[in-house]
């Protein structure tokens, strides 16, 4: 088990798994931090008079903060739980054989119990929404006016909805972890031995799958996800409006104009196909009859 290539290979997989979750969480943390800092620098006393121009912005920020706090609480609970799970998973390998588990295997188990991978794995929708919705970076927006504020509001709303959805996902994973913990404890109590790593891993996978499938059918999951999708679309539309204002200033074609062209082209093609079909039918009608 200590053969370097094997060790390297498994470690690579463990790292890959770990990094996926880490990157997702880091991105979220960075986005929230940059938003907060940007907001602080913007709302200077001298600029307070500008605030009424951004209706609802303060309310949205408060909502965002509440959503962040809710997720942070869950995060704390998940981290504590995952620490116990990691011990349980890694310890299970030693249960029957008495042999110490390979460090890389232990690292894999630990990575699987990391709540960051839970959000990265099953909450992938928020990443997709973000990827689809994100055009220009927020840093580019601060010199604009009312339209930029709309983009900011839409971004705030999107982050809030994403956090709310992540909280629901996290609750699901916590439920899975608790169910798993109870099952492991029950089995250990029964015969005095903790299950081996194979059984433990299978149990975790089956428990988590069952609980997460239930979670995904729940109203909170579906509603928060729909809200996240809606807010992602609104953010993108707000970005487009602003980009089109700039494009119009410099004489560049806008998305709306291109859509108009595409609509016209589609309609023309449709008419052309219909015309060609009618023409072909007229020409082919006698031949078709003779074939029958």
């Amino acid at each position: 088990m200590s053969d370097p290539p094997f060790d390297f290979g498994l470690k690579s997989f463990a790292d890959f798994w770990w990094q996926a979750g880490k990157a997702a969480q880091q991105a979220q943390e960075d986005a929230t931090r940059s938003f907060t800092e940007a907001l602080k620098s913007t709302i200077r006393p001298a600029a307070q008079a500008d605030l009424p121009v951004w209706p609802g912005a303060a309310v949205d920020n408060a909502e965002l903060a509440r959503a962040s706090e809710a997720l942070a609480e869950l995060w704390k609970a998940a981290t504590e739980l995952s620490t116990g799970m990691a011990k349980s998973l890694a310890g299970a390998g030693n249960g029957l054989s008495g042999a110490k588990l390979d460090p890389t295997v232990e690292a894999t188990f630990r990575a699987m119990a990391d709540p960051r991978t839970w959000l990265a794995g099953a909450g992938g929708m928020d990443l997709v929404i973000g990827a689809v919705a994100q055009g220009p970076q927020l840093a580019d927006l601060w010199n604009a006016e009312r339209q930029q504020a709309r983009v900011m509001q839409a971004w705030t709303e999107m982050r809030r909805r994403t956090l709310e959805h992540n909280a629901v996902v996290m609750q699901g994973w916590l439920g899975a972890a608790r169910a798993f913990g109870e099952e492991i404890a029950g089995r250990t109590k029964k015969d005095g031995n903790s299950p081996d790593h194979k059984t433990t891993l299978a149990l975790w996978a089956e428990t988590a799958n069952r609980v997460m499938l239930e979670t995904q059918r729940s109203e909170p999951f579906l509603q928060t996800q729909a809200a996240m999708i809606r807010s992602g679309a609104e953010f993108r539309m707000a970005q487009r409006e602003m980009a089109e204002r700039w494009a119009a200033q410099f004489g560049f074609p806008t998305r709306t104009e291109l859509d108009d062209v595409h609509r016209s082209l589609t309609e023309l093609r449709r008419e052309f196909r219909a015309f060609r079909r009618k023409h072909a039918e007229r020409g082919a009608a006698p031949a078709r009859k003779s074939e029958a």
């Binding site: 088990m1 053969d3 290539p5 094997f6 290979g9 498994l10 390979d102 295997v105 894999t108 790593h197 194979k198 891993l201 299978a202 975790w204 996978a205 089956e206 799958n209």
Partner: peptide, 19 residues
């Protein structure tokens, strides 16, 4: 899920697949 979980356990126990 069950298959995948057992796959890791098997792979962990041999290591040859990774090589």
């Amino acid at each position: 899920v069950s298959t995948a979980a057992h796959a890791l356990a098997d792979a962990v126990s041999t290591g040859s697949k990774l090589l």
